[in-house]
Structure formats: structure tokens, C-alpha cells
């Protein structure tokens, strides 16, 4: 597993769960691809029914074939890129951290992590017809830091994931009581 290379495991750290987007999100993209990829065939059929001379023309025929081929190649590449986007997004919960690895298109990859003991608020949401029926949705993790909240997008069983993160954060806090005491002291002095 190459994702492990991105997450330098600490000696006391155990991987609790790895999360990806729900498989149905990829299936929806695949159905969209099938619809879009069928367009040249529908146009071909329409031309064959209404303008057969276009499919027999010495110029129009090769021009249409090349245009359809380029379109299908583009769609094929788009499908594979969408699969990569799905495949390379990963969230890992350990007993110490939450690591987010997100691929945004071909040229942007973000790896971020937060300490579980800093977690302040975790929200899970399931919105829409398919997410409700197939139980997937978003989980948002808010920390005390200045970093924006973490978003685990379209993961299966979001409510269970929220509970798991909160439980792991509670456990981890016990190992960081000194750190928490220092932070509270600083906050009191500053306030």
C-alpha cells in the first residue's frame, strides 16, 4: 500500500480505519460516462436515418469518424481520471491522528493531518436520495486550530464514523492532558 508511505507511522500508532468515498459515487459517474459516450452513436444513427449521404461522403465520412474517435478518447480519459480521483482520495483514522489525502484533478494533491486530541466538534450529514438509501455522506471535523475544518466526503456510514472519531479523540485526550493544561493556561493568561 503506497498510501502508507505518505503517513509516517509513529511507533505507538495503530491504524483504526481507512475510508474512501462510497462506491456508488463512482457508479453514478460511470452511468454519466455511458450516457455521454453513447452520443456519437446516437448521432450516427440519426444521420443514417435522415442524412445517409453524409455517412457516404468522401469528406464528411472520415471527418465524422475522426471527430467521433476524438470525442470517445476524451470521454475515456475523463472516465479514467474520475476513477483516479475516486481511488486516490483517502482518509485514515489512527489512534493518534486523522490523515486526509485528496487528489484534486491531475496536478493538485493535498495531504493534511490533525491530532485527534485537538478535535472539538464532529458533524456528520447525509443529504439526498441516494445517500439516504445507501447510507453515505459527509463528516466534518473541527479543531481548535486555525486550519479549516476537515471534510471526509461521501464516506460510508458517516454517523458511525463521527462516533468513532469522537471516541478516538476522547481516548487520545487522556494521553495529552499535559498539552491541554498548557493550552488552557495560555488561554487564561491571554484572556
Amino acid at each position: 500500500m503506497t498510501a502508507a508511505r505518505l503517513i509516517a507511522k509513529k511507533p505507538y500508532e495503530d491504524r483504526i480505519i481507512e475510508l474512501r468515498r462510497h462506491g456508488l459515487t463512482m457508479l453514478k459517474r460511470f452511468v454519466a460516462f455511458l450516457v455521454l459516450a453513447s452520443v456519437p452513436f446516437l448521432i450516427w444513427w440519426f444521420l443514417g436515418q435522415n442524412f445517409p449521404e453524409m455517412l457516404a461522403g468522401s469528406v464528411s465520412y472520415p471527418a465524422l469518424v475522426l471527430a467521433a474517435s476524438a470525442y470517445e478518447l476524451g470521454m475515456w480519459l475523463l472516465l479514467f481520471t474520475m476513477f483516479l480521483d475516486y481511488e486516490l482520495d483517502l482518509w485514515v483514522v489512527t489512534n493518534d491522528r486523522l490523515v486526509s489525502i485528496e487528489q484534486n484533478g491531475l496536478f493538485a494533491r493535498t495531504v493534511a493531518e490533525l491530532d485527534l486530541w485537538r478535535v472539538q466538534d464532529v458533524t456528520s450529514e447525509v443529504q439526498g436520495f441516494f445517500p439516504t438509501f445507501f447510507n453515505y455522506g459527509n463528516v466534518y471535523v473541527q479543531t481548535a486550530g486555525a486550519v479549516d475544518r476537515f471534510a471526509l466526503e461521501q464516506v460510508p456510514n458517516p454517523h458511525e464514523v463521527r462516533k468513532l472519531i469522537l471516541d478516538m479523540a476522547d481516548i487520545d485526550r487522556k494521553f495529552h492532558e499535559k498539552d491541554i493544561a498548557v493550552i488552557q493556561k495560555i488561554a487564561t493568561t491571554a484572556g
Binding site: M1, T2, A3, L84, E87, L88, Q103, L106, R109
Partner: peptide, 8 residues
């Protein structure tokens, strides 16, 4: 990307 970052 798949070879470098994907899971085997």
C-alpha cells in the same frame, strides 16, 4: 499517478 499514489 495511479502507479505512484494508488493502492496495489
Amino acid at each position: 499517478h495511479m502507479v505512484k499514489f494508488g493502492t496495489y
